[in-house]
């Protein structure tokens, strides 16, 4: 089937970037795998429509965001059902001497609330416009703008701190 071949081609070509996007959004390798798997399955189901509409990337970004939210919601619900306290937030990686800047960025991402993290990845990694980011996240452009601004402040702090500590031997 032609459609299936197109689907395999698209997904094979985009898989590394999809996975990077998902991982940077959630910071969890297993969750990223699950979410990408679910996303490409949903993409396959809707492939004829989505590929014809010529907005495959937009669809995929929206699916990734939604699936991530779903997964988080489900894991939260599980915790609640068991009657236990919600799990504490994953402790962020602590930057230390000699740590590469990009690792600091991962650490900075780990500190961010999910919304800020998502805008950062969509806007800077996926290079989406304000409007496209808002569409993928299902929120207003104003919301995207303010989340981006806050995320950048946080990230810049982490990066500057790293640079400072790199320049000043203790």
């Amino acid at each position: 089937m032609d459609a299936e071949r197109e689907f395999v081609e698209y997904v094979s070509a985009r898989l590394p970037s999809l996975h990077r996007t998902a991982f940077l959004m959630c910071g969890d390798a297993h969750l990223a795998d699950d979410v990408v798997q679910q996303t490409i399955t949903a993409l396959y189901v809707n492939w004829r429509r989505v590929s014809r509409a010529d907005n495959v990337d937009a669809y995929v970004h929206r699916m990734l965001v939604h699936k991530l939210v779903d997964e988080k919601r489900l894991s939260w619900a599980k915790v609640r059902l068991l009657g236990a306290m919600p799990e504490p937030e994953r402790s962020p990686v602590t930057p230390h001497d000699g740590l590469a800047e990009r690792d600091s960025l991962l650490a900075a991402l780990a500190h961010l609330p999910r919304g800020q993290r998502t805008v950062l990845v969509l806007r800077f990694l996926c290079d989406l416009s304000l409007a496209d980011t808002a569409a993928a996240m299902g929120c207003s452009e104003g919301n995207v703008k303010s989340q981006t601004a806050r995320a950048l402040v946080a990230v810049r702090q982490v990066l500057d701190i790293t640079e400072t500590s790199g320049r000043n031997p203790r």
């Binding site: 996975h19 991982f23 798997q37 490409i40 399955t41």
Partner: peptide, 25 residues
């Protein structure tokens, strides 16, 4: 710089199966 860092940040190998997506789909 942020875009470049996001591009180069170390990310684990994807463990995603296109064949399974097709079958499940």
């Amino acid at each position: 710089r942020i875009a470049a860092l996001l591009q180069s940040a170390p990310v684990p190998e994807p463990r995603v199966d296109v064949g399974r997506a097709i079958r499940d789909g």
